[in-house]
């Protein structure tokens, strides 16, 4: 399974693409495969404050529902309405058009690099 090397990761199978203080957030291909076909996505509202590790949304497939966890402390500044309208984007292109939201990070977040994340997924 592909794990882009230019992204940061959490142990909750989310990825972050940094642009200054902002980070675009999505879930990894590993998570998207495990979720199954996502049919409903609930994202945090723009302006909402996130606390690292706390639930901030839901990803629902026909077979299950999973919490979306905040990857870091910060504030939501943009959401991907396209993926809300068409959740299949998350399965089709989890690292690209299936991104979820952009947040402004506050403070340091304990993130993983691609190598550490790859190790996590192979260890199960």
């Amino acid at each position: 399974m592909t794990i882009p090397t230019d992204l940061s990761y959490t142990d909750q199978h989310e990825w972050l693409r940094f642009d200054g203080d902002n980070a675009r957030v999505g879930v990894t291909a590993y998570a998207s495969e495990a979720l199954g076909d996502v049919v409903f996505i609930e994202l945090p509202a723009i302006g909402s404050k996130l606390s690292a590790g706390e639930p901030c949304g839901e990803l629902e497939s026909t077979k299950s529902v999973s919490d979306l966890f905040a990857p870091a402390n910060g504030e939501v500044v943009e959401i991907n309405q396209a993926v809300v309208d068409n959740p299949q984007l998350l399965n089709d292109d989890p690292f690209g058009t299936g991104w979820l939201f952009v947040m402004r990070l506050e403070g340091e977040a304990p993130l993983l690099d691609a190598t550490a994340y790859a190790k996590l997924t192979t260890e199960g």
């Binding site: 199954g36 076909d37 049919v39 497939s61 026909t62 077979k63």
Partner: peptide
């Protein structure tokens, strides 16, 4: 197939997409 344990059996949960199969 993605296999799953069902009642002690290893069974196909889905082959491609469960919604497409539906």
């Amino acid at each position: 197939a993605t296999l799953t344990d069902f009642a002690g059996w290893s069974m196909p949960l889905k082959y491609t997409s469960e919604v497409a199969e539906h």
